[in-house]
Simulated assay, not measured.
Amino acid sequence: MDFLCEILQALVALAALGLIVLLIVAHVTAGMVSLLRHEKEKYFVTSSGEKEPFPSLHDPHSRELSVVIPAYNEELRMPVMLDEAMEYLENRQKQSPSFTYEVIVVDDGSKDKTTEVALRYTRRYGADKVRVLTLVNNRGKGGAVRMGMLSSRGKVILMADADGATKFADLDKVEAGLKDLNPKPENMAISCGSRAHLEKESVAERSVFRTFLMYGFHFLVWFFCVRGIRDTQCGFKLFTREAALRTFSTLHVERWAFDVELLYIAQCLKIPIAEVAVNWTEIEGSKLVPFWSWLQMGRDLLFIRLRYFTGAWKLGSPHKTD
């Protein structure tokens, strides 16, 4: 019995030491993301080929809606999504002439013709409606969304994936979710599109291994960071301008797990969050590599919690950046 107690004590001591080492590693390796832009990232190209500076999220809004679309090597999938989005937005403007909008395509350092494809829409609809922000280096999806958000003019701002997996008309649903939150007096609220209602169907179609990874990721999200939101990863989220400024100015993670940190920040700041069921279809060509991407996200989830716990990352006030 004494021998078993000694083994148990040794294991507890080893676990405590491992936790301390992990805390130290998480704290020491917690780099701060640079919000500084390359000179080329400060401007968008007009339909006539001239360069004009992007506005700032810190400025007052001048459009009802901004749509931020992160895109990495999306020259093939993006046109379908943009055609659907522009048709919806143009029809809405015809029905309600006071409705104003902009679409910002953020090319995340693509190696294909993503920027050239997006600029066709600028030439067709004008730079007041469609703008292209081309990042010099690949930042990751979270970094691309953040740069688009910080360049937007909308009173409310939608992030939407370039693959068009979510029907753009479901904007009506997430808008209704945002209004139901009644975001006053600070006007901070987030409405998240959700695929949770489709989970049973997706499990039936997935392999056992991918299903195990999915449920494992959901558990880690719940255990370390976000509770009460069943689907943190749907790329269809609507923010009030104030909520976008507060959360994206604080965001650190720029890869796949950025949604989780974003919602973790929002819950820490007590920003109201709605989760709204949307239509979703899996589109071929995903950049997500099942095993390695999930492994990276699991690591990021652990480090998100540890870095905020140790004070390496803080929920500071947003500062204007160049």
Rank of each mutant, 00 (worst) to 15 (best):
residue 259 D to L: 13
residue 313 W to K: 04
residue 197 H to E: 03
residue 292 W to E: 10
residue 309 F to V: 01
residue 297 M to N: 07
residue 275 E to C: 11
residue 169 A to I: 07
residue 229 I to W: 03
residue 139 R to W: 09
residue 18 G to Q: 05
residue 232 T to H: 04
residue 121 Y to N: 05
residue 116 E to T: 05
residue 312 A to P: 02
residue 57 L to F: 11
residue 58 H to K: 10
residue 219 F to H: 11
residue 278 V to K: 09
residue 188 M to Q: 08
residue 315 L to G: 03
residue 236 F to T: 00
residue 78 M to F: 03
residue 267 Q to A: 13
residue 77 R to I: 12
residue 317 S to V: 07
residue 186 E to P: 01
residue 272 P to K: 14
residue 158 L to I: 04
residue 214 M to D: 03
residue 39 E to F: 12
residue 141 K to N: 06
residue 236 F to M: 11
residue 301 L to D: 00
residue 95 Q to V: 00
residue 265 I to E: 08
residue 110 S to E: 02
residue 178 L to I: 00
residue 140 G to N: 04
residue 1 M to Y: 13
residue 89 L to N: 01
residue 108 D to R: 05
residue 190 I to W: 00
residue 261 E to F: 12
residue 255 R to A: 14
residue 81 M to V: 06
residue 95 Q to M: 08
residue 219 F to I: 12
residue 66 S to Q: 06
residue 258 F to G: 02
residue 92 R to S: 05
residue 151 S to W: 09
residue 69 I to T: 07
residue 253 V to C: 14
residue 318 P to L: 01
residue 245 L to D: 06
residue 277 A to Y: 01
residue 134 T to S: 15
residue 106 V to M: 07
residue 115 T to W: 06
residue 292 W to M: 13
residue 1 M to Q: 11
residue 299 R to Y: 12
residue 38 H to Q: 13
residue 100 T to C: 05
residue 45 V to I: 14
residue 98 S to N: 08
residue 66 S to T: 12
residue 58 H to G: 10
residue 143 G to R: 09
residue 26 A to W: 09
residue 82 L to T: 05
residue 1 M to G: 11
residue 140 G to D: 07
residue 108 D to Q: 04
residue 174 V to L: 07
residue 11 L to R: 14
residue 71 A to D: 01
residue 64 E to L: 14
residue 12 V to P: 00
residue 162 A to Q: 00
residue 194 S to R: 03
residue 241 R to P: 03
residue 144 A to T: 04
residue 156 V to K: 14
residue 257 A to Q: 10
residue 198 L to R: 07
residue 21 V to T: 11
residue 188 M to A: 01
residue 62 S to T: 15
residue 271 I to Y: 05
residue 107 D to S: 08
residue 285 G to R: 09
residue 15 A to C: 14
residue 286 S to N: 11
residue 211 T to N: 10
residue 280 W to Y: 15
residue 70 P to D: 06
residue 147 M to V: 10
residue 260 V to C: 15
residue 135 L to H: 06
residue 57 L to Q: 07
residue 320 K to N: 01
residue 35 L to G: 10
residue 308 Y to N: 05
residue 97 P to V: 06
